[in-house]
Design a protein around this nucleic acid. Sequence first.
DNA 1: ATGGCTGCAGGATGCAGA
Length: 260
Amino acid sequence: MKVATWNINGIRARLDVALTWTREVSPDVLCLQEIKSEDAAFPAERFEELGYNVATHGQKGFNGVALLSKLPLEDVSRGLPGSDTDDHARFIEAVISVPSGAVRIVSLYLPNGNPIDSDKFPYKLAWMQRLERHAREMLAREETFALCGDFNVIPTDADARFPANWRNDALMQPETRAQYRRLLNLGLTDAFRACDAGDGSYTFWDYQAGAWQKNNGIRIDHILLSPQATDRLVGAEIDKRVRGWEKPSDHVPVIVELDV
DNA sequence: ATGGCTGCAGGATGCAGA
């Protein structure tokens, strides 16, 4: 089963690119972030025509996540547990029945957190703590699951072309990295890193200042696997071709192959 | 470079992004 995650940066502005890529790569599951649409405005029928079931958790203007799957999406749940006041649409999860049992897929858009002296940064850290709690519960159930999405975390200096540029950025703060490690240390595996130990692989290049042309990128889109999912990991890749397409998202898809 | 693009809401620019 091929599972992909992609921060699409506006599904309506990006529909042609998204459909072209989906037709070509034909992932079994596609997790989208930053759909920047309310549920009713998401062009679900265009993906249903390609054979996908669609579940969205959108909001007006910004944020918004979606799950697309060739197999039915069961037990769809919207919103990250653990807050009564968080009204950002950043989390959706569902279960997919597969020959070996069931796989839970999460599509998440972790808060950016900039600037770090604003209340956005503690919001990011609190969101990460809620994610850790949620992951702990899923692990306790020994589920086969994948946390897929834009984590807005540069895990190590090897994940940035110019680490010094990000020293004051929320994506690379010591607190951010420490909380990300706490998540990993529960027993999750960074699927891409498990398959590619080298540096120089990125998932985001800014629109500004020729970042793509200079390969001034960062790796912030991740797929984290539970131990049961890691046992079934076949491969992982970043499809950076897409960043060079016409009217691209500033993020590119990350893909894992699971033998389920 | 002082965020140098980009999408969105709304109907001009301001916000958000990373």
